[in-house]
Every structure is written in structure tokens, then in C-alpha cells.
């Protein structure tokens, strides 16, 4: 943003402001900026660029996000069309189904009336348990789901760490997994 450049480009034009100051200040003084017309071109250009970038981000984002995941039962129903495509699947980890495996973990995930076996490569996050619903990223391989990312769906319930509250939290967790869609 050098003053010299600006003066070269816009300096020759008549200043719109000269009337109010009583004499012409703009053509010779490099510090004065130039016309509004020139500025408008810059501004409109910047706005267009910003709008395009924003549009792309929104499109890329919400296109993905409006169907951010399928529930297990939906995914099973769409299995023919999904094929080996990569997608996200949400469900509840079945209690007692989590087993350490070579290079990862296996478990069963359920939602609605469907259950799917999952083989996950890599270690699950710390909070991974059968108490909190998860979203897994991967694809079907046969009847199994092969995932490489487990996302924990935490909700906005916070409880102080007291023994009697932990029981309640567990109850809440099972409640919520049933009601949320």
C-alpha cells in the first residue's frame, strides 16, 4: 500500500472533495488519496473475492454437513448405494463388545434396530466407551464397517465428580442415546 503507487494510479483524477476545502489539494500532493471511483474498483474487487471464497467454504462445508452422518439403521438401508464409499455413521457402542485388536479395536455399534460390526484402525480417543454415542468415519467392507476415526459425541451435560452423580450420568447417557436422532 504505498502512497506513490496510489498517487500514480489515481492522482490525475479530479478530487471529489476539492469543493469543500475551497481549493484543489489532490493532484500534486502524494499523501492525498485519489478519487472515490478508483477506490470503489478496489473495494468491489475485494468484496467479490471475499464472496467467492465464502461461498466455496459454505458450499464445501454444508454440502458435507447437512448429511454429516447416517445413523446405523440408515446406513444399513443405504448400503447398496453407499458401496465402498467413505461416510460417517453414528450409533451407540454396545456394552461389552469392545475388544482390543491388532493395531486397533473392534466393537459393535447399534442404532434403531440395526447392529454393525466395526473394525477400527488406530487407538480410540480417551472418552471412548459404551456410555457415549460415537460417529465413526470409514466404509463398509462386506458386512463389516472399517473405520479409521472415532469421534465422541459429547452433549452439554456437566456433572461434578461425585459418586452419586456418576450413577446419574450413566442413566442420563442411556436416556439420551435413545432419544437423540
Amino acid at each position: 500500500m504505498s502512497d506513490e503507487i496510489r498517487a500514480d494510479v489515481f492522482g490525475e483524477e479530479e478530487s471529489a472533495d476539492s469543493a469543500s476545502t475551497g481549493f484543489d489539494v489532490s493532484p500534486k500532493a502524494p499523501r492525498e488519496m485519489g478519487s472515490r471511483k478508483g477506490n470503489k474498483v478496489v473495494a468491489v474487487g475485494a468484496l467479490v473475492v471475499a464472496a467467492v471464497v465464502l461461498g466455496l467454504v459454505v458450499f464445501n462445508g454444508l454440502n458435507d454437513a447437512s448429511m454429516f452422518y447416517y445413523n446405523v439403521d440408515e446406513a444399513v438401508a443405504r448400503k447398496p448405494e453407499l458401496g465402498e464409499k467413505r461416510f460417517r455413521m453414528q450409533g451407540n457402542v454396545i456394552d461389552g463388545s469392545i475388544k482390543e485388536a491388532d493395531g486397533g479395536v473392534t466393537f459393535k455399534i447399534a442404532y434403531g434396530d440395526q447392529v454393525v460390526d466395526v473394525e477400527n484402525r488406530g487407538n480410540p480417543p480417551e472418552l471412548f466407551s459404551s456410555e457415549i454415542p460415537v460417529i465413526i468415519e470409514g466404509s463398509f467392507v462386506g458386512d463389516e464397517f472399517h473405520s479409521d476415526e472415532i469421534i465422541i459425541r459429547h452433549d452439554n451435560n456437566y456433572d461434578e465428580e461425585h459418586p452419586e452423580r456418576i450413577d446419574k450420568a450413566k442413566q442420563d447417557a442411556t436416556h439420551r442415546t435413545e432419544s437423540k436422532g
Binding site: 471464497v53 467454504v57 462445508g61 447437512s66 459425541r153
Partner: peptide, 28 residues
């Protein structure tokens, strides 16, 4: 908590748009 820093999920995507718009405001 989730295991990932970022996903283009609705809340995060719309938040990114919001931030960009106000950065655009300052740029203008």
C-alpha cells in the same frame, strides 16, 4: 473430547463463515 480438532460439521462450518465475514468487515 471428540478426538479431532476440526470437522466441517454445521456449528463449526457456520462459525468459520461468521469469523471470515467479520474479518472481511475489518478488511473493508
Amino acid at each position: 473430547t471428540w478426538g479431532v480438532f476440526w470437522r466441517w460439521e454445521p456449528r463449526l462450518t457456520t462459525s468459520a463463515v461468521l469469523l471470515l465475514m467479520y474479518i472481511g468487515y475489518l478488511a473493508i
